[in-house]
Every structure is written in structure tokens, then in C-alpha cells.
Design a protein around this nucleic acid. Sequence first.
DNA 1: GCGCTTCTTTAGAATTATTCCAAACTATAT
DNA 2: ATATAGTTTGGAATAATTCTAAAGAAGCGC
Lengths: 142, 142
Amino acid sequence: MAKKKPDKASLDEAAARLRSAGLRPTRQRVALAGLLFGKDHHHLTAESLHAQAAKAGVRVSLATVYNTLHQFTEAGMLSQVVVDAARSYFDTNTGAHQHFYCEDDGALIDIPGEAIAVAGVPSPPKGMAVDRVDVVVRIKRA
Amino acid sequence: MAKKKPDKASLDEAAARLRSAGLRPTRQRVALAGLLFGKDHHHLTAESLHAQAAKAGVRVSLATVYNTLHQFTEAGMLSQVVVDAARSYFDTNTGAHQHFYCEDDGALIDIPGEAIAVAGVPSPPKGMAVDRVDVVVRIKRA
DNA sequence: GCGCTTCTTTAGAATTATTCCAAACTATAT
DNA sequence: ATATAGTTTGGAATAATTCTAAAGAAGCGC
């Protein structure tokens, strides 16, 4: 049988992480953090995480999944990837990197941050500061 | 009083454009094309174009605005800019260029195509071809 | 541990953007 | 003019996300 829940150690670690981000380590937040950070970096949507939680036997409402994703993003534990007007993707990799976005099936593929160089960004309007530079390489079946 | 509708000449030109794109020059398409291409390049949403049409005295349903925006995009007369998961922006400038996106107020500002250079894009997975590379420079009030 | 206060969760309603639908129209070719 | 195929439209339908008010847990002081 497949292991469903993350092990206790990683859950404890998740709780600690939450605490230091100023978030109470509630059952649902700890469980979601376990699902999110217990494995390799990956991409997800609110719906997909909600489904994954259900499969792992964690009871969480979809509203809480949305809340949690936003709180984690706010806390810098996740980053949001905007590639499609229809749905919001999140990425457990918060480091500087970019994405391929497959327009046929909606898949996201990481491009390591050091691979791509963007030169010539003009200085932003007065009073504004650059928050970050996103590069999306849109690909299609040839 | 402010001029509300585009002049006849530009409407005729719009009709010709539509015809060569394989679209019947209907009253609503011609009117929307007049609003879109009769002036400098700009950014818009379905809602904003619908409102603008209403103000210009053109009767068009919102559904038709959506249809038309997609058809024009398909025909290469408009391009879609994805910067915010919440709404779809369109751009009358279909040339290669990029954008500043102001996260505070949702404003889009063009960055000329020749300004920015993106180097190091890895080759896409087998069987895939790069459709285009979008760069969004997210800015905030400093 | 007990009670209190504050933060969280939740089900379901509400919102928002967008698409779908079937009926009424209209451009175009004949 | 007519017929035909492509369009428009209001309103219903969807989909993703947010809001709300009430019930449930955490954390703190005693």
C-alpha cells in the first residue's frame, strides 16, 4: 500500500515552520504543509491540493485550502505563478526561477533561475519598485 | 461635445480588415474594431470595452464583446496579456513587447520589444515548440 | 486543567469573470 | 429576393474564488 500521510517528523517540522511564520499550527495547516513541503518541489492548484488532502485522509474544506495557500504565499513559503487567466497555480519552489507553460495541457515545467537572463528592463515609473520579473515561455505541441 | 463614434473612414478600414481576417464585418464587429484600432495602442478588458461601447452609443452584448475579443485575438489583431489570475487583459499592440504590471492598481504599461532581451531559454521538451516568451515586470509602490 | 480570548475552520451563500444556449437576426451568395 | 450559413443576444449556466456567520481549536494566565 502507498504511504498516505507524511511521517511524524516532517509534521513536527512543519509545525515549527508555521510557528516561525506567525501562523498557529492547526491540524489543517500542519497537514497541508506536510503535503506541500514533504516532497520535491512541485506545482499545484487549490483544487488539486484539496483533492490530494482528501486522498491522504485529511479533512479540510476548500475554503481553508484557499486561505492556507494565500497565507503560505504571504509568508513566503509558496509563490504564485500566473500563466493562465482561468486558474491560479502555486509553486513550492520560492527561489528565483521561471517556467515553461504548455498551452495544450496546462502543465508547468520549471526553468532553473540561473538558466535565464533578462537584460534591459527599463527603470519603473517614479515611486515604483520592481517586485519581481516573471518569464513565461509558452510552448505548444509542434 | 466629445466625439463619440469613430469617423466613417476608419470604420470602412475596419470592415476591410475584418474581411481579410475572414470575419464578416457585422455592425458590432466593425464598431468594436473602430473603438479598438482607431486610436493609439492600449490595454483593455472585456468589461472596459463593453462600457466604452455603451458610452459611444454602440449597442453590443457582453457576450459578443467576449466573442469578438477572442476572434480578434485568434486573427492576430489583438494579443492577450496574462498578468493577473482574476481578469483577462487584451492589448491592441500585437508586436513583440513586454509589460510592467502594477500590483497596486492593476495598471499595465508597455515595455518596447527591443528594450528587453531574454537569454538562456532552454529548449523545450521533445515535440514542443516555443510559442512566445512573456516577460512581466511586477512593480509596486516603493 | 479551567476558563477566556482570539484566531481558525467550515458549510454554504455570494461574487466575479466568462461561457453556453437556443432563438432571433443579418451578411452574402445565388 | 431567397436561402443559407454565420452572428448576436439575453439570460441561464459554470467555474474559480471569496465572504459570512457560527462552531471549533489554540494559547495564555491562573
